[in-house]
């Protein structure tokens, strides 16, 4: 009996160190006053963050990535809303296999998606552009959006819709007055998750990037130059803080949604 609690305490301790090691080192090196990313630490500085402000090629990449991430978030959430609503509210022939197919990009290796989109775009005679990356990102983000939105739609009591209809409202108004406000937290969470995934996605973006880089493609290019590394650490720190804030906001909205619909919080993101 004595062994068990202690086993888990030790195990979880070591596991968390393993899990958090990179995330903790990132800000450590970002504020380290040395042009070499290694121990021992040399002192505190914020100069690497200042370097970021003057790097124009970075700004281009950030702008590209933001454009891609915003567009991806909107479209994959839109596709997610349609699919989640269809699969939770209606039963239609082939529902399971259709949903399985739409969710497939979740388990497919990203290289396969990257390769196949590359082939199609080139065969069709299109130029690689930011739009090709957007298409790829919508494809991989939609399953995540569906997963989040399905739980939002599933928590929606079907009799609420029927009640609205029964009280004389049209289907269209029922959607705007009852369904949309109640799944709104799920939609916000879905937008944020898709945004975050797209912002960080590299494998597909690398395959489909034309002349214009996204942020991860830019980072990949810079990793070859040792003198750029400290400022990359600073960039990574900013991205980490941004991602976590977005996730916390997404989780806040999800919880609010759970509270609103009056259903027990069943924990767990994703």
């Amino acid at each position: 009996m004595l062994g068990r609690g202690h086993f888990f305490k030790w195990y979880m301790g070591i596991f968390l160190v393993f899990l958090y090691a990179p995330a903790i080192l990132l800000p450590v090196f970002a504020f380290n006053d040395s042009s070499v990313v290694s121990f021992p630490l040399k002192g505190f500085t914020t100069k690497w963050f200042a370097v970021l402000q003057t790097t124009d090629s970075l700004h281009v990449a950030v702008r590209n990535s933001l454009m891609i991430a915003v567009t991806t978030a909107i479209f994959s959430t839109l596709f997610g809303v349609l699919a989640a609503r269809a699969s939770t509210r209606f039963s239609f022939p082939g529902r399971r296999s259709i949903m399985g197919f739409i969710m497939l990009p979740m388990v497919l290796p990203e290289i396969i998606i990257g390769v196949s989109l590359l082939v199609v775009i080139i065969q069709m005679g299109f130029e690689l552009s930011l739009w090709s990356i957007i298409l790829g990102h919508i494809l991989i983000c939609t399953p995540f959006c569906i997963a989040i939105l399905s739980s939002a739609f599933m928590n929606l009591d079907q009799s609420l819709e029927e009640a609205s209809f029964d009280l004389g409202q049209t289907r269209w108004n029922t959607f705007w007055l009852v369904i949309l406000p109640l799944v709104m937290p799920g939609i916000v969470a879905s937008l944020l998750i898709a945004f975050t995934i797209s912002l960080d996605e590299f494998i597909i973006a690398f395959f489909l990037a034309g002349t214009e880089p996204t942020l991860p493609v830019y980072i990949w290019g810079q990793l070859r130059f040792p003198q750029k590394l400290p400022s990359l650490m600073a960039l990574g720190t900013i991205l980490l803080v941004l991602s976590i804030s977005l996730l916390l906001i997404a989780d806040y909205f999800r919880r609010r949604g759970v509270r609103k619909t009056g259903i027990e919080n069943s924990g767990g993101f994703l």
């Binding site: 009591d157 109640l182 009056g262």
Partner: peptide, 9 residues
Amino acid sequence: FQSYAIFPH
């Protein structure tokens, strides 16, 4: 309705 279907928002 059995669940009353009170609009929670």
